[in-house]
């Protein structure tokens, strides 16, 4: 099995639709015409590669990569998992970028106005590249929930944003990770843009007591699945079959 086939069609009923009125910003930012289906060409089957040399030693350590006077405030956690494709094969060399609010639910961003305090020791960004088995991990603090202007009293559950590059531009994905057991997940208009409950559950990281670092940090496991490709076995089929 090689990497050469085209990608399985994206299951648009598994992803959120573009127009989701309960998430108000989507109303004016959603295409109204149908997307034009395009069988993958070389332009979609290729994608940029990021070498491990692009990363610094603290890129996957949000406890230390911005710290000025000490560790950031908050629950210390390790987030780890694998990047797989829809054929359940690992995706090595995938670049993951992640960003999050601090323990109080405040982002370090010039346009952020929430009254919770900025943590002088927390930047909130990191990145990692998966190893040969598709594995990644990073260290951080658990982000806080935060209110946001949508309804007058809407709150985001604790979450970490992920951007993922696989091997092809067709696999490009941005998503969010939630935390097992958080009741806030089920009242969030952005989570609720995903129509299927089991699709939402795919974004909920599991608390992993086996991999907890004793006297140090809790562990959460979060696997990410990118689109998979057809096997080339069927690529050379006879015309008209």
């Amino acid at each position: 099995m090689s990497d050469q086939g085209s990608f399985y069609q994206r299951d648009r009923s598994w992803h959120p639709p573009a127009f989701t009125p309960s998430y108000k910003t989507s109303v004016l930012r959603s295409p109204q015409q149908p997307l034009l289906s395009l069988e993958n060409t070389i332009s979609e089957l290729t994608g940029p590669v990021f070498g491990h040399d692009k990363l610094g030693p603290l890129d996957n350590d949000l406890l230390r990569n911005f710290a000025k006077t000490g560790d950031p405030i908050g629950q210390r956690i390790v987030v780890y998992g694998r990047v797989l494709d829809e054929n359940a094969r690992p995706v090595p060399g995938a670049l993951l970028e992640f960003w999050q609010a601090n323990a109080g639910g405040r982002y370090r961003h010039k346009k952020e106005t929430y009254l919770a305090a900025i943590d002088p020791n927390f930047g909130g960004c990191g990145r990692a590249i998966t190893d040969e088995e598709g594995r990644y991990w990073f260290r951080t603090i658990k982000p806080g929930a935060y209110p946001w202007p949508n309804g007058v009293n809407d709150w985001r559950p604790a979450h970490i944003h992920f951007s993922v590059f696989g091997h092809a531009f067709a696999q490009r994905l941005i998503t969010q990770m939630y935390f097992e057991g958080d009741p806030m997940i089920w009242q969030d208009p952005i989570v609720a843009t995903i129509p299927d409950k089991s699709a939402i559950e795919q974004l909920v990281a599991a608390l992993d007591r086996q991999n907890t670092l004793p006297m140090d940090a809790l562990a959460y496991k979060f696997d990410i699945v990118l689109r998979g490709r057809r096997s080339t076995m069927f690529e050379n089929r006879m015309e008209g079959n």
Partner: peptide
Amino acid sequence: FLKESPSQTA
């Protein structure tokens, strides 16, 4: 087969 992780807004 696995399902692709659903997208969420950036």
